[in-house]
Design a protein around this nucleic acid. Structure first.
Lengths: 352, 352
DNA sequence: CTGAAAGCGCTAACAC
DNA sequence: GTGTTAGCGCTTTCAG
């Protein structure tokens, strides 16, 4: 059983206690026994605490090495009460808007020594709640939530119990909490005003489902721009609903071929824009287009967009989260990030 | 202190034990005391175990509600030895290739009641190892890894200790482990053969850094196609390296303007393709292009690609992982997914 | 500088 | 049906 032989195959020299449920892993106790020291000394070495002789430390390190010991953070968490992990609940990680956002949150978490648990709500309020509560049961230190639902009172006990929470992209429903979002209203208004400045008056708006805050805000921006220009709008120019290709395609087709055909379309988000671009590509009469959200390759396709910075959204939210975790006692705030209109051609097409 | 008043504001009725580090949260013990039952009975109710009278159950549920109790999974994990979470280490969640992959892994995890912890290695082997070991310390049940490094012996003790591990996109280095990947060699060969079939003989290859397995495989495919066609290739047609825009732009420009200018380019991945498309857009002489990886809007730009299914990669890997966790004793395998050539125009341009 | 004992909140094993 | 006890692997406290 003696293995001072210095073999490289660490795994084989691990102790074989039969009933250990962690796949038979060595514990600090095992390390202590092997190094001939007390449990607490091992703890000190593992955590880099002072007060250990270099010689003792070496012996402990050797034992750790030989046994292939790795501290069990579950036990640590139980004792310390902090998991050094945060949760991020978003709509769909497969959406190109959320990848950079998640990555930005991860970077901030990493800088604070925390891991990130991701979850996709699929825009389903029940699933959002289920995920959030699962994360709370894991005792994540904090939560970044892109809300799917519009009632977050279920989070009140958690927040009261100390789970720092920041909402992103859309405000929380029925509770007072931090939120970081883009200026959807202003961005949409600017985009539509841009189309108006290029001579359009019959402008369509295709947006997401009305229960989604950003959809409503962008629609408000559209209406404001139209009103500012003194344009009376036809309700046949406005379409809200699911952003799947079928619905959007139908809506866009109806708008450009209907009785009062639009000469321009404002697309409410990246998914809408992509589908509208496809529809317009198959259409002979040129129709102008401005889309909310930037898209990869939009420059090559000459798509004018109102860009929001997904990474900045995530970064700002995460930084605020960690400021709370570090003890800052700031009142819930609403942080709004500016959008940027990027003209690339499609928004500058004159009315037919 | 009695609060049978049935107030809705759950948070306020929670007990105020002063020194609890979980932000003062009620435990099962508190619930038991309040419901006037034993600890184990609460545990039974919380976990839906049988053997509790409906009446007792109701009283316990009420106490849970009133206190805002939520089971502490950290303690549960410590006891049970399973965290019901898996880790996914990839290169960069902001890359559109990985979003869908991560989402697919998440869906499988969800179906098995597990959460997903994501981490980005930024293609840095040290960071990959750091992340993987942090996940192991958290005692994730399993690991899906898109390797950045080429030596994974550091994982041997973990795997031996029972951490199920599946590699994706690239094989593990120096250890024998499951891997799920796309047929990079075959895909690249098909893509280049497609260009050759359209009359090209001077074909460039721009790929990722040579330490990345897929880069090498795709280059091999390129060489194989060229050799099959009896084309002797000039080394000035081949360029491997970082896939940042600067390097790729320089490489592409050199190839199309050099002494032996290519009439077609095969792009080794999505990032390369995007940059090459931009370069070719500014170039007067038409140059054919086939890219590895599909890209959003590639259909509108008419980019011919060799598509791999990122979601299928993730799903397959995760399913294999959970099969292991469910006790299947399968030997490490290599699963290769087919790629699909999608002609859209850019690959069918004849040589100038 | 070092170690023994207590206990984090839960579940497993066994009483009653 | 229900409760009691022990203990998961670690950190905290406090004594040597």
């Amino acid at each position: 059983m003696d293995d001072r032989t210095g073999q490289r195959t660490v795994a084989e020299t691990a102790p074989r206690r039969p009933e250990n449920r962690y796949g038979n892993r060595p514990t600090m106790k095992d390390v202590a026994a092997r190094a001939g020291v007390g449990l607490k000394t091992v703890s000190r070495v593992v955590n880099g605490e002072p007060g250990v002789t270099p010689d003792t430390e070496r012996r402990v390190q050797e034992a750790i090495e030989a046994l292939g010991f790795r501290r069990n953070d579950s036990a640590r968490v139980l004792r310390k009460g902090r998991t050094a992990s945060i949760g991020l609940v978003l709509e769909d990680l497969a959406d190109p808007f959320y990848g950079p956002l998640s990555r930005a949150v991860e970077e901030v978490a990493r800088a604070h020594g925390a891991l990130l648990i991701n979850g996709s709500s699929a825009e389903d309020p029940d699933r959002e709640q289920e995920l959030v509560l699962a994360l709370c049961a894991r005792r994540v230190d904090g939560l970044v939530v892109i809300p799917a639902g519009d009632d977050h009172r279920y989070l009140e006990p958690e927040i009261a119990a100390g789970v720092a929470t920041v909402f992103v992209d859309r405000p929380a429903g029925k509770i007072d909490a931090d939120v970081v979002l883009s200026d959807s209203f202003g961005g949409a208004r600017d985009g539509v005003a841009h189309l108006i400045a290029h001579g359009h008056r019959r402008i369509g708006f295709i947006g997401d489902q009305p229960r989604i805050h950003t959809a409503i805000e962008r629609l408000r921006g559209y209406r404001a721009a139209m009103e500012d220009a003194g344009i009376e709008l036809s309700e046949s120019w406005v379409s809200l609903g699911a952003t799947g290709p079928e619905r959007v395609q139908a809506a866009a087709t109806a708008m450009i071929t209907g009785p009062e055909p639009v000469t321009a379309i404002f697309a409410g988000n990246n998914r809408v824009t992509v589908t509208v671009v496809r529809v317009l590509a198959d259409h002979e009469r040129p129709v102008a287009l401005v889309g909310f959200d930037d898209i990869e390759l939009a420059d090559l396709l000459g798509i004018t967009v109102v860009a929001q910075d997904a990474a900045a959204l995530g970064r700002t939210a995460a930084e605020r989260l960690f400021r709370h975790l570090d003890g800052a006692e700031e009142a819930p705030a609403r942080i709004e990030l500016r959008t940027a209109l990027i003209p690339r051609g499609s928004g500058e097409i004159p009315p037919a």
